[in-house]
């Protein structure tokens, strides 16, 4: 394999880890409540703006903006749950699309109204410069985002599968009524899931902002990637989202390099539909 090809694969893996990071929040609530959040991309966007604000107002880098964005978006998630999602869950599945699409427009254009339409970027040396390791060039900001992405998704996975809290949350997702009989409060668990999903999404946003541009409509671009990643991996499976994110990242990079950048999305979508053809529940979803 030529050195360039290795570089392409590495960049794909780093990208994939970031995809996994910003999809993990989506898969969590999707799996737990069977709710698809069409405003997810806009949650990421607000996380990015939080990072931009922290830098412009206080000069703070990721060490300040990551926890801040986690808190801001977690609060937003919990507020959305209590004010909106809790109510639309009573309606048909379509109500979720309706409600979260309305929320998406509201947040996206609320951001346009507040921050203006202009593209914002953080200084590219905020996280440190790129370095060369074994002939491969690594960009500081992307490495940080990728590593944190891996850590957060793994932590979420462990939390769901290895802790008492996690099994309580899963109990609610499988049968809320039965869980209630066992003394678990479904609403509290669901609100917690929205909070955790929000925190992961906020972290993702703050990290993406360090190497990406920030604008009110950036969430749209990211949302479709997140949807594909999550259903590719299987709803509710954090590990699935991680694997799917990495696969998509590498496939995108390789096909962009080998076939042509225009076709990279085409390849990803074909792969996605093909995977569903053979595994209708996604890579790691439960049948």
């Amino acid at each position: 394999m030529s050195m360039t090809l290795v570089q392409v694969v590495v960049s794909g893996l780093l990208l994939g880890a970031v995809y996994a990071l910003f999809s993990s929040g989506l898969t969590l609530i999707w799996g737990m409540m069977n709710v698809v959040n069409f405003a997810h991309g806009d949650f990421v966007m607000l996380g990015m703006y939080t990072a931009v604000m922290i830098w412009t107002a206080l000069g703070g880098g990721p060490w300040a903006s990551v926890p801040a964005a986690a808190m801001v978006i977690a609060t937003l998630g919990i507020a959305s749950y209590f004010l909106l999602v809790r109510h639309i869950m009573r309606g048909p599945m379509l109500a979720q699309i309706l409600g979260t699409f309305g929320l998406a427009l509201f947040l996206r254009y609320g951001a346009l109204w507040t921050f203006g339409a202009n593209f914002k970027t953080l200084p590219d040396d905020l996280v440190g410069h790129s370095f060369i390791l074994a002939g491969i060039r690594f960009e500081g900001a992307r490495v940080l985002a990728g590593v944190v992405g891996l850590l957060v998704t793994l932590l979420l996975h462990l939390l769901l599968t290895r802790t008492a809290l996690g099994s309580r949350m899963l109990a609610v997702s499988e049968d809320a009524t039965a869980a209630q009989l066992m003394g678990i409060r479904p609403q509290r668990m669901q609100a917690l899931a929205w909070g955790m999903a929000g925190a992961a999404t906020g972290i993702a946003g703050a990290l993406i902002a360090t190497f990406f541009y920030t604008s009110p409509t950036v969430g749209e671009t990211l949302a479709i990637v997140a949807f594909v990643t999550v259903s590719f991996g299987g709803f509710g499976s954090v590990l699935g989202a991680l694997v799917a994110g990495l696969v998509i990242g590498v496939v995108e990079s390789l096909s962009a390099y080998l076939i042509g950048p225009v076709y990279k999305d085409v390849i990803v979508y074909i792969l996605f539909v093909a995977v569903l053809w053979f595994r209708p529940q996604g890579l790691m979803g439960k049948a």
């Binding site: 639309i88 109500a95 409600g99 309305g102 998406a104 509201f106 109204w113 339409a117």
Partner: peptide
């Protein structure tokens, strides 16, 4: 973008 703030909010409220 006030148009879509209003538009989004009304959809939201109906949902």
């Amino acid at each position: 973008g006030l148009t879509f703030v209003v538009y989004g909010a009304i959809i939201l409220i109906i949902a």
